[in-house]
Design a protein around this nucleic acid. Structure first.
Lengths: 180, 180
DNA sequence: TACAATTTTCAGAAATTACTGAAAATTCAA
DNA sequence: TTGAATTTTCAGTAATTTCTGAAAATTGTA
């Protein structure tokens, strides 16, 4: 399991990014390695390639599993477990959307709802609730979107994204669709 | 500058979330306080309300400024600087999208492009480039979208988001239209 | 200009998070 | 079963990040 210079620079970058994200450096590197390698890898190979301890890999894998980001495989005649990433990049994207929604949006929405159910104790609370209401509404819409994306095929997701350069067009499409 | 229980629980939640995000706990709390309070606040008030040192507030403000998340105000006859958040929640959302794109997508896209320009040293590199190409394409579309959103008025952004669960249907309609 | 008010900086301390090696637990073939 | 191969756990250590107080810098007024 040797890492080419090209792979190394990508792995490093994902390490940096991973720590800026909710993950940590090692996790970012591990996932980069798995995504960029065609063959499934076992824990020892990951440990060798990234120069991190076997136990660190074990913890990383546990985390990646909890994010549903890796596939588990077995190779006949080999007792080790092998890990790989989905070959469809859209599937990875979809998983990331779902998992981040679960971890970030859902609990926040629930905190917002709690606050909105309370009686405002004074003017300050009234203002607070008003702001919470705005954030709640926005976030709920984002949630609905993410649910939608979650159920969308890769093809469809791709079509939607490609529509990008003219989101305005989508709005137009909506008008036409609804008004006929 | 007293914080009501309702505000306190929201501030705590944002603290938790902030650290899961790229920000840190204090920054999350600071921004929650500013967003949830109607009046602009000065650094001492923030320091009092959150029980953190004046210098910590100063660093936090610097960071929030770099994210373009706060507005700076002066109150006549008072030399202190006062801080507030945009009243339009969509504006805050838009700013977050822009800033995160700058910090996360742009550098990543550039790393991807570097890798794609290199000559693959072997089969492993060829596979790596293929995967990078996929990720690049996806991320470029996301970038285009975010640019689009950046230039969209709050009204239009709101309309688009409200479309939510209707998006799939519109795409269906489009498919049917194109394939006949 | 002088100076009080305010903000910023920054070295070190405190807190948090990540990582390791050793040991425990699990798995599976014989 | 047994025991070798493999994975997981976890206490302690290392590394990183955050926070503070003191001092320096800046600002604005008289």
């Amino acid at each position: 399991m040797t890492v080419t210079p090209m792979q190394q620079s990508l792995i490093s970058h994902f390490g940096e990014m991973g720590s800026r994200w909710g993950l940590n450096r090692t996790l970012g590197q591990m996932y980069a390695l798995i995504v960029l390698t065609e063959q499934p890898l076992n824990a020892d190979q990951i440990s060798d390639a990234l120069l991190i301890s076997r136990s660190n890999v074990s913890m990383g894998i546990k985390e990646l599993k909890s994010w549903n980001l890796i596939k588990l495989q077995h190779i006949p005649g080999d007792r080790k477990e092998y890990f790989s990433a989905p070959k469809d990049i859209w599937e990875i994207a979809r998983t990331l959307i779902i998992e981040r929604r679960k971890r970030e949006l859902d609990p926040t929405l629930s905190t917002f709802r709690d606050a909105l159910l309370q009686d405002p104790a004074n003017e300050a609370d009234k203002y607070t609730q008003q702001r919470v209401q705005d954030m709640h509404d926005l976030m709920e819409m984002v949630t609905i979107w993410s649910t939608e994306l979650q159920n969308m095929s890769s093809d469809k997701l791709s079509t939607l994204l490609k529509l990008g350069s003219g989101v305005g067009k989508i709005l137009d499409a909506k008008e036409r669709f609804l008004s006929k």
